[in-house]
């Protein structure tokens, strides 16, 4: 999503953080520390955005999803159980919202399949030059989600099963099928 014009002077840069334990950051942010907030944002944004993007394949949607998840996390800081890590909770929101978004888009395409394409962004997104994104497009959103959670965010299949509220066997099968398709797609592109 483009910002009107080119003037970004109103965007304050994110303060540069110093490395600290996530639990301490959550505690300090909940007490009102902006420095802790900035550190948390810096630590969480790349993973949240990238995970969303790899599932939805749409930069604007990924931005919305990651931003909304972070805002939801910030708003829940006071109620958050500080004994638990923040990131799995955040990633659960991101991945579930991204799956919903991708499903909705598929549904919308089914309903509107007779309409002429009028969305340049969407058209641009279909021809990905990055081989891994193009290969991921061959997977279902659910398969993409488990691949991303396992191989980008490095959760175990057990953790993924808990996050997505799925049986562990389902996670394993989606992972296996997803990786098979991904491998085939990448090999075809390399030939």
């Amino acid at each position: 999503m483009a910002v009107a014009g080119t003037d970004r002077s109103h965007f304050a840069p994110v303060p540069t953080p110093r490395a600290r334990n996530e639990r301490a950051l959550v505690r300090e942010a909940a007490r009102g520390s902006e420095q802790a907030l900035a550190e948390l944002f810096r630590a969480c944004w790349p993973g949240a955005y990238r995970a969303a993007f790899l599932i939805v394949h749409d930069h604007s949607a990924a931005e919305d999803i990651a931003q909304e998840a972070l805002v939801a996390a910030i708003r829940a800081l006071d109620r958050f159980d500080r004994r638990r890590p923040l990131r799995p909770w955040l990633h659960r929101i991101v991945v579930n919202r991204a799956i919903d978004w991708a499903r909705l888009r598929s549904l919308r395409r089914e309903v509107l399949e007779l309409e002429a394409p009028d969305d340049d962004t969407d058209n641009a997104n279909r021809g990905w030059s990055d081989p891994v994104i193009a290969a991921l497009a061959a997977l279902t959103p659910e398969q993409r989600a488990v691949v991303v959670l396992r191989h980008l965010l490095e959760y175990t299949p057990g953790e993924i099963a808990t996050m997505l509220q799925l049986p562990r066997g389902t996670v394993n099968s989606r992972l296996r099928r997803g990786l098979d398709v991904l491998k085939t797609q990448l090999e075809e592109r390399e030939r």
């Binding site: 999503m1 910002v3 970004r8 109103h10 965007f11 304050a12 840069p13 994110v14 902006e34 907030l37 944002f41 944004w45 790349p46 955005y49 990238r50 993007f53 790899l54 930069h59 990924a62 931005e63 990651a66 931003q67 972070l70 805002v71 910030i74 990055d130 891994v132 994104i133 991921l136 691949v147 991303v148 191989h151 980008l152």
Partner: peptide, 21 residues
């Protein structure tokens, strides 16, 4: 996977920070 989608991430981060803040 870590490299994918990097072209949009930084600009999105710039836009997201004021909203989160």
């Amino acid at each position: 996977l870590e490299r994918a989608g990097d072209d949009g991430r930084a600009r999105a981060e710039l836009r997201a920070w004021p909203v989160v803040h």
